[in-house]
């Protein structure tokens, strides 16, 4: 298909001509998604580990729920956050709808089940090896969870990267809660959606390639760090 090739050519030309507005969009995308990942990770990792290490009534139901939430469409998350943050909603007084903060909240919520479910699985697998030793040392659920998270840090990096990928590639939720406001809440994905709807397919594709490049760079960096650290620890 010749148009496909033409669109790609044009896309790369546009990337070559990287302008400041585009850099702002890239920077905002990174800021929002990194914040979302950091916030979500800090809560979801201990939560997932606790689910793996402790037993309490309702635990299995909770595990199933978290796993099921993996399939939650981003738009639904966006809508729920929108209704919460709207002036007419329960958290309306904060007035953060249509700001980057709202997008951080939406992405953090969106990736929470992903991090929690995968972390739980990883910790549960390792727990079979560690459980007796931990109990023998007298370690309770908190100390055990933290120790396992630390020991699994290399696999957790992969999980967190996957979550980052989902966050930065997501469009439905941030569109709803951010509003795609030029210069304020326009990120890579909403810009792509906008250019697509304007029929400017080369620019949309160019932005898509930039997005892919960023995610790729981040993954390469994380992979190299991980390899080095893993070799160190055997």
């Amino acid at each position: 298909m010749s148009t496909f090739g033409a669109v790609f050519g044009e896309a790369f030309r546009l990337i070559g001509a990287l302008d400041l507005a585009l850099l702002d969009i890239v920077w905002l995308s990174l800021r929002v998604s990194l914040s979302a990942v950091l916030i979500s990770t800090v809560v979801a990792l201990p939560f997932g580990a606790a689910l793996a290490v402790t037993r309490f009534p309702g635990r299995d139901a909770l595990v199933v729920t978290v796993n099921a939430l993996l399939g939650l469409p981003a738009v639904v998350v966006g809508l729920a956050i929108y209704l919460l943050l709207s002036r007419a909603g329960p958290l309306g007084t904060f007035g953060i709808l249509f700001t980057p903060a709202a997008m951080v909240v939406a992405q953090a919520v969106l990736i929470f089940p992903l991090i929690a479910a995968l972390a739980r699985q990883a910790v549960a697998d390792a727990w079979r090896e560690y459980a007796e030793q931990m109990r023998s040392l007298g370690a309770g659920p908190v100390a055990s969870s933290l120790a396992l998270l630390h020991d699994l840090r290399f696999s957790l990096v992969t999980i967190v990267l996957a979550a980052f990928g989902r966050a930065i590639a997501e469009v439905g939720a941030v569109m709803i809660v951010g509003g795609n406001i030029d210069g304020v809440t326009r990120v890579m994905t909403t810009a792509i959606a906008l250019e697509t709807s304007k029929g400017d397919l080369p620019l949309a594709l160019g932005l898509g390639i930039v997005l892919l490049g960023i995610v790729l760079l981040l993954n390469v960096g994380a992979h190299l760090l991980k390899e080095r650290a893993q070799r160190h620890h055997a």
């Binding site: 800021r31 929002v32 990194l34 914040s35 950091l38 800090v42 980057p100 903060a101 951080v104």
Partner: peptide, 11 residues
């Protein structure tokens, strides 16, 4: 974490 939070707040 702090740096990102600051960057975000620096709107």
């Amino acid at each position: 974490f702090l740096a990102t939070a600051l960057a975000l707040g620096a709107q």
